[in-house]
Design a protein around this nucleic acid. Structure first.
Lengths: 352, 352
DNA sequence: CGATCCACTCAAAGCGCTTTGGAAGACATC
DNA sequence: GATGTCTTCCAAAGCGCTTTGAGTGGATCG
C-alpha cells in the first residue's frame, strides 16, 4: 500500500492525501478525517526512504560507536545510549549506530555527511586534541560533542561535566582529611576526560604544595579487573597511598576487592573517592563501604544531548553552545581522616 | 556531488558510473578505474535514501529496544549489542535502534515493516508466550529471535542458550555436593529465560525428590542492589539455603556483598552458582571468591545473530533455524560441599 | 565481405514521497 | 454580473539512485 493507491482508493490526489497526513492547513477537516480513516483501515505507512529522498531529512541521528580490537563494551556508553534513546523515541527519531574502528572514523563521518543517512551526529570519547571535531565543523552536519578537547578553543556545540573541578573538589576533601599521599586509578590517558580529571587533582594538590607521584597513577580501561590490579600495585608500593581517586565505580569495584583482600578498611587505612556515572545496576551507596563519589548521571547527559541534537536539526541551536555540568560531591563512608594524620585526629582512629 | 554530476564530469552515463561502482562485470576495467579515481577526487558518496528507494533494500537491521518507566539500562543488552555491531560494521550494515515502550511495540514493528526502514529485525526479552513473534511471522520482515517462548511451537528463527539445561547442570552439581536447600535469585518472571532456568533447576531437584521453596525464589531486575537484598532476605530465613543459583553475575555481586557482610564464606557455609554472560569489565573468576558459573558469551550470541540476520536478508536462511547453545559449567571456588553434609565429607570442613 | 557476437555504453523508466504552481468552485464585494 | 478572495484540490516536477532494454563499434567467423 503506497500513497498512490491510497489516493486512488479515496478518490483524491496524492497531494491532498500527503497534505492531510502531514498536517497542512489547506485541507478540509472532513477530508483529513476520511484520509486518516483510510490509513487506519489499510495500515498504510509512508515509505521512509521515499520521504527521506523527497525531504532531505532523515529523522535520525547517527552514533559513531567505537569498535575494534581492544574496544570492550563500555558500560558508560550503554547508559548514555539509554538516555539518548529515551528522548529519541519521544520525537520519532531513529538512532543509527555506525560502529567504526577508530582509524575509519573519519571515513565514516564523511560517509554519513555526504550520504545523508543522518540529520545529525553525536561524538564522544574525545581526545586531548581531536581531529574529528575539526572534521565535523567542516562537514555541515549538525553535531553535539559529549566531552571536550583539552587544548583547543571551545567553539563547537558540546556538553561536558566539569571533570577537573570534580576531581579538584575530591582532592581537596581528602587534603582536608589530612591525606598527603595520593593515587589515581584513571581511564586511558588519551581520553580528554581522564586528562581533565588528572589535571584537576594535580592542581588541587599543587595548591597544597603536593604532587601526584607518577608511580601512583594508572591509566587503563575501566574494568573491575583493572581496578583490582591497579589497587594491588598501589598497595604493594614501598610507600602506599592513603588516598585513592578513581574514575569509575566499576574500577572501584576491583579496587575495593583488593583493599578487602589486604584486610584494609576503606575510610580508615585507606580513603577512596570514585566518579559515579550513576548506573542503576551498580550503586556507589551500596558498596560494602558506601563510596564517596563525584556524581553526574551519564544518562541525563544522554537525554540532554538528544534534546540538543534534535534541536539542532530543527534549526534551534541551544543558547549556550557549551554546556558544562558540575558534578556533585557526595560524601559517604569511604573517606576518612588520613591514618596517623594529626590534623583532624578523629575519634574513629583504630586503637592499634 | 551526486551521480549525475559525477557522470557528467567523467563524460559517462549515470548507468555506467553506477555499474562501475557497484561492481557489475560489463564495464571496462579502465573505465572503472577512472570512475573510482573521480570518486576519490570528489568525495562522492551515494545518497542512501535514494539507494534505498531504488533497490528496496536498506542495509540496516532494526533493534526494537525496550524503554520506558522501570526499564533500566540492561548490561546484557549492551554487551549483546556490541557483538551485533561488530558484524554489522563488517558488512556495511547499519543498526537502527527503535526504542519503544512495551505497549507500543506492536505499532513499532508494523511501522518498521510497512515503512521499509529496515531489512530485518531482532527480537529479545522474550516472554513465556510472546505475541510479538506471531506478529513478526505475519509481517514478511525477516527476523531472528534471541531466546524463545516457553510453550509454543518453535517454528521461527531463533538463537538461544539451553537455559534449562544449564541450570539443571548447576543444580545437579550442587546436589552432588550434598546440598538440599536451594534458593534462586532470578530475573523478572515474565521473561522466558528466567522461566526456563527455574524449570531446569526445579526438574533437577525433583529428580532428587526435592523442590524449590517458593520463599527462596526471587524474581527481580538484575542489579547489584537486588542481588544484595535478595541474598539478605534468604539469609534471614529461619532455615536459610546452603545453595544459591543466580541468574547474573551482577546479581551475584550484590549477593556476595550480603554474604560477606554476614561473615559467611562462599564455597563453605554457602555455595553459589551464577550465570555468566561474559562481561569484559566484570569477570566471574575475579570475584574475591571466584564464582562457579554457567557460562555463555552474550556477545557471541550478538555476533551470531547479526550473521544470521544478514544472511536472512541476503536470502540465505541458516540451516537449522533453531539454534540452541549449551552453556559451559565452570567450577570455581564458590561451590563446595554442603555444610554438615555427610556424603562428600570434605577435607575443607570448618572445624567448628 | 557480410553476418555474428561480444564488450561496452547509453537513454529512460521507475522507486514513493513532497512540494510547486496552478485551477476550480464557493462565496463575498462592488 | 464582473471582480476578487478564500478554500480546497490537483497535475506534474523533482529527490538521486538502480535497472531495463537498446544501441554502438570493433573483433571474429564462415
Amino acid at each position: 500500500m503506497n500513497l498512490r493507491e491510497l489516493a486512488r482508493l479515496l478518490d483524491l490526489s496524492q497531494t491532498t492525501v500527503s497534505r492531510a497526513l502531514n498536517g497542512y492547513p489547506e485541507v478540509n477537516e472532513d477530508t483529513r478525517q476520511r484520509v486518516l480513516q483510510a490509513v487506519r483501515m489499510t495500515g498504510y505507512r509512508p515509505n521512509r526512504a521515499a520521504q527521506r529522498l523527497a525531504t532531505g531529512r532523515t529523522n535520525s541521528i547517527g552514533l559513531v560507536m567505537p569498535t575494534g580490537a581492544g574496544r570492550d563494551t563500555d558500560l558508560h556508553f550503554a547508559e548514555f545510549l539509554s538516555g539518548l534513546s529515551e528522548v529519541a523515541v519521544g520525537n520519532d527519531v531513529q538512532l543509527v549506530i555506525n560502529p567504526s574502528r577508530i582509524e575509519d572514523e573519519e571515513a565514516t563521518f564523511r560517509r554519513l555527511a555526504a550520504g545523508g543517512s543522518v540529520d545529525a551526529v553525536y561524538l564522544s570519547y574525545i581526545r586531548r586534541s581531536d581531529p574529528r571535531i575539526a572534521l565535523l565543523k567542516s562537514l555541515s552536519l549538525p553535531f553535539v560533542v559529549h566531552g571536550r578537547e583539552i587544548d583547543g578553543v571551545l567553539d563547537y556545540p558540546l556538553l561536558d561535566i566539569d571533570n577537573a573541578g570534580a576531581f579538584a573538589d575530591a582532592t581537596r576533601l581528602l587534603l582536608q582529611l589530612g591525606h598527603r599521599r595520593f593515587a589515581f586509578l584513571n581511564a586511558a590517558d588519551h581520553l580528554s576526560f581522564a586528562i581533565a580529571r588528572h589535571q584537576g587533582a594535580a592542581e588541587a594538590l599543587s595548591a597544597a604544595g603536593l604532587a601526584l607521584d607518577p608511580a601512583l597513577v594508572q591509566n587503563s580501561p575501566m574494568t573491575e579487573e583493572h581496578g583490582y590490579r591497579g589497587m594491588m600495585r598501589l598497595l604493594d608500593q614501598a610507600e602506599p597511598p592513603t588516598a585513592v581517586l578513581c574514575s569509575s565505580v566499576i574500577l572501584s569495584l576491583g579496587a575495593v576487592r583488593a583493599v578487602n583482600e589486604r584486610g584494609l578498611r576503606l575510610g580508615r587505612e585507606l580513603s577512596l573517592i570514585a566518579h559515579d556515572d550513576v548506573f542503576p545496576y551498580l550503586k556507589a551507596e551500596n558498596f560494602s563501604t558506601p563510596l564517596t563519589t563525584t556524581r553526574s548521571s551519564i544518562r541525563q547527559a544522554g537525554i540532554r544531548i538528544a534534546e540538543r541534537l534534535i534541536g539542532e536539526v530543527a534549526g534551534i541551536a541551544a543558547d549556550p553552545q557549551q554546556e558544562i555540568w558540575k558534578a556533585d560531591l557526595i560524601v559517604r563512608a569511604s573517606t576518612g581522616p588520613a591514618p596517623g594524620s594529626s590534623r583532624p585526629k578523629a575519634r574513629a582512629q583504630a586503637p592499634t
